[in-house]
Simulated scan of single mutants.
Amino acid sequence: MTSETLLLIGRETAHAQEMLETHADRLARRGVVEEVDAVTYEREPVRELRSRLRSIPGDRVYVMPVCVAHTFETVRGLPAALSFVSGTVQYCEPVGWNPAITDVIVQRATDQIQAGPDVSLVLVGFGSSSKPYHRQMAEYHATRLREGTAYGDVHACYLVQDPAIECARYAISNDRAVAVPLFLTHCEATERRIPEQLEPTGIEYTDPLGTHPLVTDAIHAELEKQRVLAVGESTAFEARLTATQRPVATDGEGPD
């Protein structure tokens, strides 16, 4: 019988390991696989995770990048680092695309202000000057929220691309508004940069998505999706990443 491991991987921040372990503990108690593990890296997945990845057990290893959308590291360095895993790797899609995340956004927002036609909702993503992943994910949820909630209007803004956070006050149509950061854990961006830019706008601000139980459900759902994909030859974006990305030997990071 094939043994399975779920590996949660996140970018290192002050609260990342705690967040990952919370989700890992819940999933382990559910018995979703034989083993659930959680690791973080600071900047260079290949260099920092190589030794740890070699020790990961399991014939099949489901690797979940615990972030809301792909980043430069999750499409380059992280899939390259996964070549050090001895088992068959099933690389998962970030959880930000799961519909359950829309429900987490609503719950975070209503903790501050009850939804209604006189309330605006602002989604704050990290964004990217060159990659579309964060914008696509934010707009996906913005569309679902416009169609399925009572908010008067819903807008997305970003830290590092337009529309910028400080422009949110010009986009919203109501005096009462709440902003939800599309991040999975507290970090420098959620604790300093976003609040500083929101402060002049008067927009209320919530906690990140974090350890909400529905985030755990989203991780579980992605695992089950990958189980189905593992039966055949997947053409998914993540499968192509693990098939094509490798450590670069000229940088001293190739297989040894």
Rank of each mutant, 00 (worst) to 15 (best):
C67W: 01
P79Y: 09
F84Y: 11
G127T: 07
Q197D: 11
P255G: 05
L241N: 08
V248D: 14
F84N: 10
G210C: 09
S83I: 01
R50P: 00
D103M: 08
Y91S: 09
G96A: 02
R30L: 15
T13D: 11
L78Y: 03
V63H: 07
P200L: 03
E199T: 03
A164P: 01
A236E: 06
Q90Y: 10
R227A: 15
T74D: 11
E18K: 12
C67I: 11
L184H: 03
G254C: 07
G232N: 11
V180T: 02
E204W: 01
Q161A: 05
R30G: 00
Y170G: 07
T185W: 01
D251K: 14
V39F: 10
D175G: 12
C92V: 05
G116L: 07
I219P: 02
N98H: 15
A14E: 14
L223D: 05
D207E: 04
F183T: 05
R76G: 08
P208H: 05
Q112A: 15
H141M: 02
Q112N: 06
M137W: 06
P247F: 01
P247E: 08
K225W: 07
V85Y: 09
V61F: 14
S130K: 10
G116W: 10
P57K: 06
V39N: 00
P163Y: 11
